[in-house]
Design a protein around this nucleic acid. Structure first.
Length: 495
RNA sequence: GGUGCCGUAGCCAAGCUGGUAAGGCAGAGGUCUGCAAAACCUCCAUUCACCGGUUCAACUCCGGUCGGCACCUCCA
């Protein structure tokens, strides 16, 4: 039974979708006004995992992730760039999607855009006005938080608490400083759509209500997003949706992911400690970033440590993740080499531990998507595989082969199904990694191959002194030679 | 001021509907190897910021203290 921590009730609950076997899920996607940073990646990956695991568990998931392609900042930024708003937003939406693809995030089933849902938004606002929970003022429309008794429940605050801390100056149009805009009257030169209140555009929160309702219906199972969206964004979404449709509508459960912190402080554009995904991708494989992020539970803050060494940024966590991924893919490569073409798992007994990965990963994921434990289980399985590969003593041949086939199969199956990891041919990852590290150190791969051949000749002639000399020379460059039964191979030594 | 989160070995990080500390990195020793590397094996927290309380039993529950972070304004 899958259990998840519902951030609305702050309790772990059994997850039972309203319609058996089917799940409707909404994630607040990006406001496309800038290049995506690690925090965007974490959120996208965290919920990609939720979606993947639900799907892998047999649910039919309808996953909606919107693109907010019109808002104040987009207008300002587009103007700064001298670009037309629509083209500007599209450009960043494309960048977002390609960055997420590099992180192994699968595209949503539906990717609605705000500008494609103006009629739905206007209709929802009209409904709120008709119900008396929203009011028009000089071409704007505001939501009256006082009309919604449950306002603040998601974020655990009362209207009074919020009002006390509100830093917003009381705009004369708002009846309560906490009231928020559903519709904003157009200022000269801004993109606008016609509405019963005159030309304008949607406020920040209404679009998610409208698009979620449009694509998932009046009630759906999961609404997810970053912790920072809980207030006011998600709070307002609830107010709008329940305000328009009544009690018991909208999201049944809420999930929020934690932040990525930089040296223990939240990444923030104003502090200037934001790490762009595209910059990190120049140095690390997208899968490495994903692996690193999955090492921490989605609700916990991730400390993204960075320090400078020899004038160059060093990311210890990413380096470690990269090395670990090399281990996993290396294990898969060994398994593939052993199994050859016959990789199917035959029925019959396997060694102790060779069949525990699948249930262990499911148990971990069933407990509020504990990816850290799932990854640890992957490690246990890889170790068991390597051990059996290294030391066949005492294990009947057929049992050994079957166990290794099972391990190879489950390693991939669970890693891909639950975590979106280890889905590539091992050689591809291994060679890409080596090439990347080699390039960073100015090592020419062809030169290494040449020296390796030279050393092999020396070894064959049993001129070990000469062979060792060549190896030491390569090691001085940070290259490690690995003599295997299939001939010499090499890797970049760990820093 | 209001609200919420966090503090587990040198570092990263699970566990927290109570029953006696997963995993990874680093480190030490070992197996394998012509020598190595990789891989594998063994060791590495009598203790979970601190102080009280509840309990037969607390890292896990309650109260308090200290320290850190976040939200209340745009933010994944």
């Amino acid at each position: 039974m899958l259990r998840l921590l519902d951030s609305f009730t702050r309790r772990k609950v059994d997850f039972v979708p309203s319609e058996p076997g089917k799940v409707g899920m909404y994630l607040c996607g990006p406001t496309v006004q800038n290049s995506p940073h690690v925090g965007h990646g974490r959120s996208a990956i965290a919920f990609d995992i939720v979606r993947r695991y639900l799907t892998w568990s047999g649910f039919e998931v309808r996953f909606v992730r919107n693109v907010t392609d019109i808002d104040d900042k987009i207008i300002v930024r587009a103007r700064e760039c001298g670009e037309e708003v629509g083209a500007f937003a599209s450009r960043y939406a494309d960048e977002y999607n390609s960055a997420m693809a590099a992180l192994g995030v699968r595209p949503p089933d539906v990717e609605p855009r705000v500008t494609g849902h103006i009629p739905e938004i206007v209709a929802l606002i009209e409904r709120l006005v008709a119900r008396g929970v929203a009011y028009a003022a000089s071409g704007d429309v505001y939501y009256s938080v006082d009309s919604f008794a449950a306002y603040g429940r998601l974020s655990g605050q009362s209207i009074d608490d919020l009002r006390a801390g509100a830093r917003v100056e009381l705009g004369e149009l708002k009846q309560n400083p906490l009231d928020f805009a559903l519709w904003k009257a157009a200022k000269p030169g801004e993109p606008s759509w016609s509405s019963p209140w005159g030309p304008g555009r949607p406020g920040w929160h209404i679009e998610c209500s409208a698009m979620a309702l449009a694509h998932l219906g009046e009630t759906f199972d999961l609404h997810v997003g970053g912790k920072d969206l809980a207030f006011p964004h998600h709070e307002n979404e609830i107010a709008q949706s329940v305000g328009a449709l009544g009690e018991g509508t909208f999201a049944r459960h809420w999930m929020h992911n934690g932040f990525v912190n930089f040296n223990d402080e939240k990444m923030s554009k104003s502090i200037g400690n934001v790490f762009l995904i595209r910059d990190l991708l120049e140095r690390f494989d997208g899968e490495t970033l994903r692996f690193f992020l999955l090492g921490t539970h989605y609700r916990s803050p991730i400390s993204f440590e960075v320090f400078e060494q020899d004038g160059r940024a060093v990311f210890p966590g990413l380096d470690e993740a990269d090395r670990r991924l090399e281990y996993f893919y290396g294990t898969l490569a060994r398994l593939d080499a052993f199994l050859g073409e016959k990789r199917e798992v035959s029925p019959g007994p396997v060694t102790a531990g060779a069949d525990r990965l699948d249930p262990a990963v499911r148990a971990a994921m069933d407990d509020d998507f504990n990816t850290a434990v799932a990854v640890a289980e992957l490690g246990e399985a890889a170790r068991a595989a390597n051990k059996l590969l290294d030391d066949p003593a005492g294990v009947p041949k057929d049992v050994r082969r079957r166990s290794l086939a099972r391990l190879a199969h489950d390693l991939r199956e669970t890693a891909v199904g639950a975590l979106g990891l280890l889905g590539r041919p091992p050689r591809e990852f291994l060679h890409a990694r080596r090439a990347r590290l080699a390039a960073a150190r100015g090592i020419v791969e062809a030169d290494v191959a040449e020296r390796l051949t030279e050393r092999e000749a020396a070894r064959r002639a049993r001129e070990f002194a000469r062979a060792d000399e060549l190896r030491d020379a390569l090691r001085a460059q940070g290259i490690e030679i690995m003599d295997t039964s299939a001939g010499p191979d090499w890797r970049i030594a760990d820093a």
